[in-house]
Amino acid sequence: MGGGGKSGFRNKSKVQRSIFIAVMLAWPLLYFAVFGIYLQVQTVLYSFQRWNYVSGTQVWVGLDNYRQAVKELIGGSYWRTGMTNALLFIPVNYALIALSILVAVILSRKFPFASFYRIVYFFPTILSVVVLTMVYQFSLHPTNGIVNGLLGFLGLEDWQRSWLGERQTAFPAVIVYCLWAGIGFYNVMFTGALQRIPGEYYEVGKLEGITFWKELFSVVLPTIWPTISTFIILGTSGAFLVYLQPLLLTNGGPNHSSTTAALEMFQAVLGAGNYGMAATFGILFAVIGSLVTYIVKRVVDRVDTADY
């Protein structure tokens, strides 16, 4: 009897607890359902549709969009340039990570003005990307830019060029911008990871008399590997999302040579209102991106992590 009453009471409090949990979970679930699932489903549906502007409706066109998309990717259209450039951003992001680690390691040494330099490196991160691109554009300006000015001052007039306006230099200039503007953020992340390495590790190393490089590869990198691997995966999948930098710097030009997959999608939707093709390419690039990211993750997971 008593036991039954007790369990009834316990049941009641459990029900209350469950209600509480359900209510707490409802909002994030709802949010996920709308912005996670619904929008994805919508994109998949759009990729099988086209806009009929005579009737003002979306019409089903079967695999037409995919057929055209594959044709354009193989036939060498702007979409292919966009995809190639997006893939090129993967090694760029790795180079960015490597550079940031190097800078973070150097700045973690106690030398005069180390924290000042850390702030200098972080500075671009707190400025708006629009301001940064303007500064960068000004410095590469074909007639008044500081880069061409310096080259002229050094007597290297032959090297002066319209950096963002020539096929050979426009995309590399966008890449250099991404390295310059991105290093600060990664630097902060790696500095944080470096500070968590126990001091004894270094002391042991010192007693053994190891060099800077030996310390970097045997002590530092294995200990911060979890952070590095996370950013490698993020950098891989993020390569397919790059669009703002080329949009602001070159508008993808000249002749779409510095465009990216995401920028072409952006322009398909906002320039031409072509939701169908943009969704189709979105799905295709998502598939390609997931594949690449999956392979990279498999490789990254094979590397042993030092436990501490």
């Binding site: 300006h141 074909p142 319209s162 950096w163 306006g165 000249p254």
Partner: peptide, 20 residues
């Protein structure tokens, strides 16, 4: 004009206003 292809509307119009 040399360098035109790197310029947006504001920058190219500025070059014109500067007599370039």
């Amino acid at each position: 004009m040399k360098g035109t292809q790197a310029l947006d509307h504001t920058a190219s119009q500025m070059e014109f206003l500067n007599g370039k």
